[in-house]
């Protein structure tokens, strides 16, 4: 894809903004529409756009497949770990009241941790799936279209 100059220039400008928007959606999810699921997908979309424009090999250099493999598991562990932490602090599983000195603060902390886990898991899984599909060799070349 060396000849698509406009696409390359525009996406170079857009990709950081998309990633930034993902984090806005993540951390503003308590106050407006948004949350871990949406932010994870948007973050994955920025990686996918990078891979589409600059090639899969470049994308794998910047976000190595090992990272997303670890991120996948880490997200689920962070979610489950929050539940175990509330257990150890004397509450029920995923009962965030015990995480801070008062119940509402505990709920805020718990929701933040859990949504971070969702973000990690969803974005890693989406990127993983895209890498898996993108790395297969098609038996038809682009010229056959």
């Amino acid at each position: 894809m060396t000849h698509h100059v406009i696409l390359r220039v525009v996406s170079k400008f857009l990709i950081p903004l998309i990633a930034l928007f993902a984090f806005y959606v993540q951390f503003h999810g308590d106050y407006g529409p948004g949350g871990g699921f949406q932010a994870g997908v948007i973050l994955a979309a920025s990686v996918i756009l990078y891979a589409l424009i600059f090639g899969l090999e470049e994308a794998k250099k910047s976000i190595p497949p090992t990272w997303v493999r670890v991120g996948m598991a880490l997200g689920v562990l962070l979610y489950g770990g929050t539940g175990v932490a509330t257990w150890l602090l004397g509450g029920a599983f995923l009962d965030y009241d015990v995480l801070a000195h008062d119940a509402a603060h505990g709920q805020h902390h718990g929701i933040l941790a859990v949504e971070l886990g969702v973000l990690l898991a969803v974005s890693s899984v989406m990127v993983t799936i895209f890498y898996a599909f993108g790395s297969r060799q098609p038996d038809l070349t682009d010229e056959d279209w």
């Binding site: 308590d30 106050y31 529409p33 948004g34 929701i111």
Partner: peptide, 8 residues
Amino acid sequence: IKIPNIVT
């Protein structure tokens, strides 16, 4: 919970 977004 005291956050505005009920869905979250």
